[in-house]
Amino acid sequence: MADETRKKEILDKLRNGVIQYDEDACREGAQEAVAEGLDANEAIFDGLVSGMEEVGRLFEAQEYFVPEILMCADALYAGLEILKPHCRQMDLGVKGSVVIGTVEGDVHDIGKNLVKMMFDVAGFTVYDLGRDVPLDKFVEEQLKTDSELVCLSAMMTTSMVGMPKVIEKIKEKNPNCMIMIGGAPTSKELADKWGADGYAEDASNALKEAIKMVAFLKKLRDEKAQKK
């Protein structure tokens, strides 16, 4: 195990690599982490995800915009690809799988992909249905995979209106399944009205919501580790 100074150096490299959308730095940092025996989960959460949290803040402050976020996401994935095979299984007491997609009539998937990224990071099994997904496909896939979370995305008002149908069908068959909706036209009011458990109106919000969920999982993990 690397000493504390070295560990901080590697985590900083991962974190800054994400913030400065430097794929090479993230790759390098990840390789160093693996080579020097740094815990892969720690490298992901305290390096890559910590960087993404800062990116979310920069977006909020209107220093970063969507192009930057997309490049940061590429950098995060570059590191994640190397670290993931070295992750120990996270035992959180939940199975952790999610069905995600953009609803039929909509071909915009940037927000969806950002949320997906955070679930990838958190070690979820992600069933990504892609975009322009027929509504029944969400219901089928949820039943088939018994996922505890379904995320529906739409960027256009013109495609959002299919959402309540999916929510109703899923909740009817599986009341415990959590549903998150996202996209520019969605709102808390609509989420409440349609019976969704969460919503995110834009990329930054999606990122924040997903980070919140992931942070929650991390807290669970830490609490568990403390008990041991």
Binding site: G105, D106, V107, M156, T158, S159, V161
Partner: peptide, 8 residues
């Protein structure tokens, strides 16, 4: 059956 706008 419902309203779906054309997409690319």
């Amino acid at each position: 059956e419902g309203i779906l706008y054309p997409t690319i």
